[in-house]
């Protein structure tokens, strides 16, 4: 579904991702772990199409298409969803209006008729249950005045509405208490299907107790220095990142 080959990315001449490769297939859940500043969020942004980064080399193929040839909104309409680490506030724009616009833009792109107001409301009610989101939140402006937990739930709620094929969740667990974490994880699990894939970016193993990954990758200094199964996450939790760094260093 997604294949990243030999990707190097920099910002203002400063290299952030260095020759990274990653393969994600349908139905899989990948966890990318790593300490702060290792390039995790940059990787997520580059896949979603943020243009502030310079792609120096490599390629990303998504569903057989060159991702770099698609602007951000096309990627979204083709099913890439980014759950933001820091969802931005958009004052005055109601959640309902925002999501209806997004869904109808996608439907238009796919050659479908737009949802009517009633249809959209029905859909929204349905999806609210998945993340246990309160009705009043959808009437408020996008993320404005939302608590940290509400913002993260709201991301999953949007994911439920947009039904992506590839969801990238950037530190969706940060700042969540255990109850909110369960709600978010539960939402993600409910949305799992055979034909979609999820990339979970986190630096705690905690989330992975609830979202069981098929693969765990350790990202350090812009490179994946170790990959393994879900046990790797426990190992990291126990021993920290140091041993992986050392192992990587000795391998070179």
């Amino acid at each position: 579904m997604l294949s990243i080959r030999n990707l190097s990315v920099s910002i203002g001449g400063k290299p952030i991702i260095k020759k990274l490769s990653l393969e994600v297939r349908e139905g899989e859940v990948h966890a990318i772990m790593g300490p702060n500043g290792s390039g995790k969020s940059t990787l997520a942004s580059v896949i979603a199409g943020r243009d502030r980064f310079d792609v120096d080399e490599g390629e990303i193929e998504y569903m057989g298409q060159n991702l770099f040839k698609m602007p951000a909104e096309m990627r979204a309409r083709e099913g890439i969803f980014l759950g933001f680490q820091y969802p931005v506030e958009i004052p005055g724009v109601s959640m309902a209006n925002f999501m209806r616009t997004a869904i109808n833009e996608k439907r238009k792109y796919l050659g479908l008729d737009p949802l009517s107001g009633a249809e959209f409301l029905k859909l929204m009610e349905e999806k609210k249950k998945i993340v246990d989101i309160q009705s009043k939140l959808t009437k408020r402006s996008v993320n404005e005045g939302f608590s940290g937990g509400e913002k993260k739930k709201n991301e999953i709620f949007q994911m439920a509405l947009l039904e992506p094929r590839l969801a990238i969740l950037d530190e969706t667990d940060s700042g969540l208490d255990i109850d909110a974490l369960k709600v978010v994880a539960n939402g993600v699990n409910k949305l799992r299907r055979k034909d979609n894939a999820t990339v979970v970016i986190t630096h705690y193993q905690r989330l992975l107790d609830y979202i069981i990954p098929d693969f765990v990758h350790v990202l350090f200094d812009g490179k994946i220095i170790k990959s393994g199964g879900k046990e790797l996450a426990y190992e990291l939790e126990e021993k920290g990142y140091e041993w992986v760094k050392k192992e990587a260093a000795s391998n070179q």
Binding site: A48, G49, P71, E73, R77, F81, F98, T101, E105, Y109
Partner: peptide, 15 residues
């Protein structure tokens, strides 16, 4: 804000 714009783009809404 560029962040607001990107957030919308990422949800599939054009510029």
């Amino acid at each position: 804000s560029e962040d607001q714009l990107f957030y919308c783009l990422q949800r599939g809404i054009d510029m």
